[in-house]
Structure formats: structure tokens, C-alpha cells
């Protein structure tokens, strides 16, 4: 019985959460809709071209529903968006949703690897900084944190290319893979490393990896800065708790107290931090992809923007915003699942 009520309460909270998120996404759509309506670019001209005859122009305007009241237009807009129809990209003349589906895996690959780097470096660094406060691991963590919060990501990317690609030749240059290997692999998942591995093209795999390592390390530094800073502060809180004293009194080794007991309790808030960091990397990839000529969503948005291709820009914005919201929901659900106190 007790478990039943607890379960019921937790689904109630989850339902509220989902409601909140639906409202947020609706708000997101209102904002993008308003942006699309106040923009100085004439959406009809963008479709029919500058030299269209008046009757063609008028027909296109009616087709796009621009003669209807704003509320109706908004309704048409969101019903299209929920079907995944963001209109046509003027630049590529594909459906925006198809374009996004094509470029999104590249961004996902980059952001995922960046986050993995952030987790593997950031958590140990944060734990060490918390256990050795005021000593050198703490100073390193502080330095990495300040560094990560103060460096323009695009500049770091450029300097990385200059040093590791041009001067030292340790990594591949801009792009996802050398032109020579481009036709070796047929896209399956869109995640190039996976595709190469699945098709057994190991030369292509290593080439793609050499292109991936620098941009993902750049993103990884920012992720490390954030994750280590938060890990440090969570661990400092945990290490002051009574159960840590109990564990020490029972004679557990310091290793087990710190890594087994304290860190385990810090994992739940860390999940939220990792999710946030992942979402931030999706954003950070806008600039990183520009520097590394990485054919992902960020570069798609900026390229479209520079060409005033509004359908593509707004479609991309909605997708990034929705993923952002989705990741936040996911982290809440995870926290609820693993932490009984949050139920």
C-alpha cells in the first residue's frame, strides 16, 4: 500500500513536470512564431523570388495563410510544427526537417564525446579538489574552472588547429573526415565513427577519429570546467555529513569513504549537472562547428542565418530548444528514480 501511494505521488509529480514542459515548448513556439512574423524579410518573396508576377505572389501569399488573422496563423504554424513540418529551406531547397535530420547526428557525436571527456576528467578532478582543499588538485580545478569560463570557445578552437594540426600535425584538420575517405562509408546512423566501425572501414575510422578529437576536446574542456566545479561543491557538502563520520569511525579506508560513500550520494545532483552540461555543449557547438567546418546543426543554423533563410533558422532553433527541454526533463526523471528524497 505504501509503495502504491509513493508511486502515485511520483507519477503525479511527473505529470506536472510534463505539463510544465508542454507549456514551455508552447512558449518557445510563440517566441519563434513572433520572430518569424516581425522579421523584415518578406517570407513570400523568399519563396517565389524577387521577380515574381503579382498574381504568383498573391497566390503564394494565400497558400502560406498570410491573409488570415494572427491567431489562425499561429494555429496553422504549431499544427505544422508538431507534424515536424518546418517548411522548406530556401538555401538547400530541401525540407528543413530533412536537413536537420541529416546534420543533427554530427552535432550529437561532437557533444556526446565532449560530455564524456567532461565526465571522465571533471568528476575525479572535482573529488580530488574537495578532498584536498587548498592544495594543488584544488588549484588545478580552480584554474581549469576559470580558464573554461573565460576563454572564447571559437578562439580556443582556432589556436588548437594552429598548434595541433598545422604545427604539430597530430590531428586531422577541419571537417569530419578527409576527402579521400569521404566515399568509403555509406551513412547509416549518421554517426560517422559508428558507421565506419559497422562497415569495417578501419582506416576511415581512424581518420574520422583524428578529425573528431580536437573539436570534442575543446568542448570537453568547457564541460570539464563546469562538472569539476559542481562536483567539488557537492562533495564538500557530502563530506560534512554524519554518515561520512560514521563510515570513518567504522574504520573504512579513506578511499572507500570518499569514492564509495560520499561520491555515491553526490551522483544524483551530478546527473542534473551533466545533463545541463550536455545541453550547453549543443549550444557551444554553434561556434565550434563554425571554426572546424563541422557539418552539424550549429553550422546549419548560422549558415542559414547569414543567408536569411528563416525557415531553417527557426526550425533549427526549435529543435535545439526542444532537445534542451527534453534533456532537462530526462535529468529530473533520473533524479527522481535514483533519489528517494526527490520522490
Amino acid at each position: 500500500m505504501a509503495t502504491m501511494t509513493r508511486f502515485g505521488r511520483s507519477t503525479g509529480a511527473l505529470a506536472r513536470e510534463v505539463m510544465t514542459i508542454l507549456v514551455t515548448i508552447l512558449g518557445l513556439l510563440v517566441v519563434t512564431f513572433l520572430i518569424a512574423r516581425v522579421m523584415p524579410v518578406d517570407p513570400v518573396l523568399a519563396v517565389v523570388g524577387d521577380n515574381a508576377r503579382p498574381d504568383v505572389y498573391e497566390k503564394a501569399r494565400l497558400d502560406m495563410g498570410l491573409d488570415k488573422p494572427l491567431v489562425i496563423q499561429f494555429w496553422l504554424y504549431i499544427s505544422k510544427v508538431f507534424q515536424g513540418d518546418f517548411g522548406k529551406s530556401v538555401l538547400t531547397s530541401n525540407l528543413v526537417i530533412d536537413d536537420i535530420r541529416r546534420v543533427f547526428p554530427a552535432t550529437l557525436e561532437l557533444a556526446t564525446l565532449g560530455t564524456l571527456i567532461g565526465i571522465t576528467l571533471g568528476i575525479p578532478l572535482g573529488v580530488l579538489a574537495a578532498t584536498k582543499q587548498g592544495r594543488w588538485p584544488d588549484h588545478i580545478a580552480r584554474f581549469v574552472g576559470l580558464f573554461g569560463y573565460s576563454i572564447p570557445i571559437f578562439w580556443l578552437g582556432l589556436m588548437g588547429l594552429l598548434l595541433f594540426y598545422a604545427k604539430l600535425g597530430w590531428v586531422g584538420g577541419p571537417g569530419r573526415i578527409d576527402v579521400a575517405y569521404q566515399d568509403f562509408v555509406t551513412p547509416m546512423t549518421g554517426i560517422l565513427l559508428l558507421d565506419c566501425a559497422l562497415q569495417g572501414e578501419w582506416d576511415a575510422f581512424w581518420n574520422a577519429a583524428s578529425h573528431l578529437v580536437l573539436p570534442s576536446s575543446v568542448l570537453g574542456l568547457f564541460s570539464t570546467a563546469y562538472i569539476s566545479r559542481m562536483t567539488r561543491s557537492f562533495m564538500i557538502t557530502e563530506l560534512q555529513q554524519h554518515y561520512v563520520i560514521t563510515a570513518r569511525v567504522k574504520g573504512l579506508s579513506e578511499m572507500r569513504v570518499v569514492w564509495g560513500h560520499a561520491l555515491r550520494n553526490a551522483i544524483v545532483p551530478l546527473l542534473t549537472v551533466i545533463a545541463l552540461s550536455y545541453a550547453n555543449l549543443l549550444e557551444g557547438s554553434v561556434l565550434t562547428e563554425t571554426v572546424f567546418a563541422w557539418p552539424g546543426l550549429g553550422r546549419y543554423i548560422t549558415n542559414s542565418l547569414l543567408q536569411s533563410d528563416m525557415n531553417a533558422v527557426l526550425g533549427g532553433t526549435i529543435v535545439v530548444g526542444t532537445v534542451f527541454v527534453g534533456i532537462n526533463l530526462l535529468s529530473d526523471v533520473l533524479a527522481r528514480t535514483f533519489d528517494p528524497r526527490a520522490r
Binding site: 512558449g27 517566441v31 554553434v286 534542451f324
Partner: peptide, 24 residues
């Protein structure tokens, strides 16, 4: 707070990009 959440839900740079797209 609902309005605030909507603006928080957008990645900052991407939203700024969209605004600049409108404003020039």
C-alpha cells in the same frame, strides 16, 4: 516564472542568433 522558464529553456546563443536574424 512561466515566461522566465520559456526564456531559460532556449540556449542563450541560439536565441540571440534568432533575434539578430530579425533585427539585422
Amino acid at each position: 516564472m512561466r515566461v522566465t522558464d520559456v526564456f531559460m529553456a532556449f540556449p542563450r546563443l541560439v536565441l540571440a542568433l534568432a533575434f539578430v536574424a530579425v533585427l539585422g
